[in-house]
Write a protein that binds this DNA or RNA. Structure first.
Length: 597
RNA sequence: GAACCUGUAGCUCAAUUGGAUAGAGUAUCUGACUCCGGAUCAGAAGGUUGGGGGUUCGAGUCCCCCCUGGUUCACCA
């Protein structure tokens, strides 16, 4: 049992003894004592006043005395207003540090281990244009959350659903057919996803021109968009594709191949991966059957034109189209099918969709519709809705060319990392390959940390010019702290100072040291909270606090130069444990650590 | 038009889910050991938490009314 739980249960006993009151553990608030007060943990006594019928100070005193008498670890207490601040004995922190030092990992020390099968879907790109900043946020979130859930004991399947069919794909195909002169990514020396994306943009531009022209000729906007010849051709292409026209399918395969190759490169550069990749072209028909079953059961209804709908009025929503009049499927149809397929495949306990919050309505409806089909697991579908990434001037718009391209961004990060590292001159003697790895760790670390430290559900602003810094609350700051500890340890080795396997005897701890041990102690519950909230930012914020605390400690106190052997050993063990937590927490974020930088 | 989300220091973000004097970074200014890494550390300055009301021991957080920005409400995905 960890110390907070022990205190909590003793407070319960105190309430019974002193005020004859039973209170459930979750009603007892125990929090970290704020820095400006003395103490380690704080019990909020306000909720007890209606039972004690005494002023807050007196109630706090009474409970404080009770705890001091019966909990060995509580060495002292003070009461300020309604807050009972408890001080924990040095010996406890020392014991804890020793036990962590003897453990292989810390992250698997969960308070409340889970053992569920969880599917996490993320990325889910369209194969008509390259990935951009928004996808980066999606990918990093999905990947990190998967690791966090794994760390809390769950079995995670990372899946990707590639949207490789539909009218948007046909647009770039058509443009390439018309104006591409057969060029390939190799011909032009660009990544395949970028090449295809260019044709998608080209289509859009020409289409708009044509629409404008038709409107000048006196058509209304609706008429113009409907009659515009390029769009008509694209629709014909889609129809040909659905009829398995050999030429069309061949073209589709070729261009999709280019894009997917480009995506793989980007995923690789970002350091993320999947356990299973689904292609919409392979699964899009699955949903139709399920919808038809629902129709037979009378859960859905058919309109005169043959289209199939779900009536959601009992959920205070409108009617929702599930199949078009011509029998073709819409977006939600395939999600119905894939959810059922995945349930059969994985028998999951939870299914998480990492998808932008503009699709809140979609997932709300998806759950309801699956519920109507009597799939009880529908309530275990969870939409992790993250906010948009905006630029200082507002939303990214592909038409206006303000989209931040994923590959460009990664490239810039690596370049900056290289420049910064060169300036510091710490790795001059490293082989070229090793240097590249370090630049990559730092550049990507800066980018990943910058994005993951923000609460997923919030929109965030990204300023391409100055956003990703290397000083302050950043990835490199944490990496730097880690590299520093490494350097310290190798220096110790040079001096033939060993890190002991165990600290023996009574070693006094100063404030900074206790502060660090407390943070290490907090780590498992931080992971638990991050998993619970599905929020990597919890881990990032914790990491920053830990690194900052360590840097202060390192600045104020000499490790190898500490006066006595005992203190040197204590500080070495503490440093090793801090670096272990940094490594594990960064792993949860998917960020690599350079040994030197 | 309706529903939902959002608004915290010049800028980018926190705030233990209703708890103490709202904290960090950045930018600006000032300073730091001949000593374990200066991508560090310390200090100054910066706030009517969009505005107004309410709930209670206590509100950035919960409720109501406005204001701002955004998203969704498609036989698009």
């Amino acid at each position: 049992m960890n110390i907070e739980a022990r205190i909590s249960s003793k407070v319960q006993k105190a309430l019974v003894r002193l005020y004859n009151t039973e209170m459930s553990a979750d009603k007892i608030q125990i929090q970290r004592t704020r820095k400006d007060f003395t103490g380690d943990f704080t019990v909020v006594v306000f909720p007890f006043l209606r039972f004690s019928k005494k002023p807050p100070e007196q109630t706090g005193e009474e409970i404080g005395n009770f705890l001091k008498d019966r909990v060995d670890e509580v060495s002292d207490f003070n009461v300020i207003k309604g807050f009972l601040n408890l001080t924990i004995d040095n010996a406890f922190w020392l014991r804890f540090l020793n036990s962590m030092h003897q453990r292989g990992h810390i992250y698997d020390l969960h308070l409340d281990p889970g053992n569920q099968k969880v599917v996490v879907e993320y990325s889910s790109p369209n194969t008509n244009k390259p990935l951009h900043l928004g996808h980066i946020r999606n990918n990093l979130l999905g990947f990190s959350i998967s690791r966090i859930l794994e760390a809390t004991g769950h079995q995670v399947k990372k899946v990707n659903l590639v949207n490789d069919r539909g009218i948007h794909i046909c647009k770039s195909m058509l443009a390439w057919k018309k104006w591409g002169n057969g060029e390939t990514p190799v011909d032009r020396g660009v990544k395949g996803d970028h090449l295809v994306g260019d044709y998608y943009v080209m289509f859009d531009r020409e289409h708009k021109k044509q629409v404008a022209y038709l409107m000048e000729m006196g058509k209304t906007k609706e008429e113009a968009e409907k009659e515009e010849p390029l769009m008509k051709e694209a629709r014909e292409l889609l129809s040909l594709w659905e009829q398995d026209d050999p030429d069309t399918v061949e073209l589709w395969k070729k261009m999709n191949g280019w894009v997917l190759e480009g995506f793989e490169q980007t995923y690789h550069d970002l350091g993320i991966d999947f356990d299973r990749v689904y292609y919409e072209s392979e699964v899009y028909k699955l949903g139709k059957e399920e919808v038809k079953k629902g129709l037979e059961k009378g859960v859905f209804f058919r309109k005169n034109d043959g289209s199939v709908w779900a009536d959601l009025s009992d959920e205070d929503l409108d009617e929702k189209l599930l199949l078009r009049g011509d029998g073709t499927s819409v977006y939600i149809t395939q999600d119905i099918g894939t959810a059922i397929q995945r349930y059969r495949e994985f028998d999951f306990d939870e299914h998480i969709y990492v998808v932008g919050n503009e699709q809140n309505y979609h997932f709300q409806v998806l759950k309801i519709v699956l519920g109507k089909l009597d799939y009880s697991w529908a309530e275990h579908l969870h939409h992790l809705a993250y906010g948009m990434v905006e630029l200082p001037e507002g939303k990214m718009k592909s038409r206006e060319g303000t989209v931040v391209d994923a590959d460009d961004l990664v490239g810039e990060m690596l370049t900056t990392a290289e420049e910064m590292t060169r300036e510091s001159g710490k790795i001059g003697d490293f082989p070229e390959e090793e240097k590249k790895r370090i630049y990559r760790a730092i550049g990507l670390g800066a980018l990943k940390y910058f994005i993951l430290k923000v609460d997923p559900k919030k929109n965030m602003t990204f300023d391409p010019g100055e956003s990703v810094d290397f000083n302050g609350n950043t990835g490199p700051f944490i990496q730097y702290s880690y590299a520093r500890i490494n350097s310290l340890l190798s220096k110790a080795k040079d001096k033939n100072i060993d890190v002991p396997d165990e600290l023996s005897g009574h070693v006094p701890l100063n404030n900074k040291e206790i502060q660090l041990v407390k943070l290490i102690h907090q780590f498992p519950s931080v992971i638990g909270e991050a998993a619970q909230e599905m929020n990597p930012a919890v881990v990032a914020n914790f990491l920053y606090e830990l690194a900052r605390e360590f840097n202060q400690f390192y600045h104020d106190h000499s490790v190898l130069g500490a006066g006595n052997q005992q203190t040197i050993q204590l500080r070495l063990v503490l440093s090793v444990q801090v670096s272990k937590v940094i490594r594990e927490a960064m792993w949860l974020l998917g960020i690599d650590l350079p040994e030197r930088m």
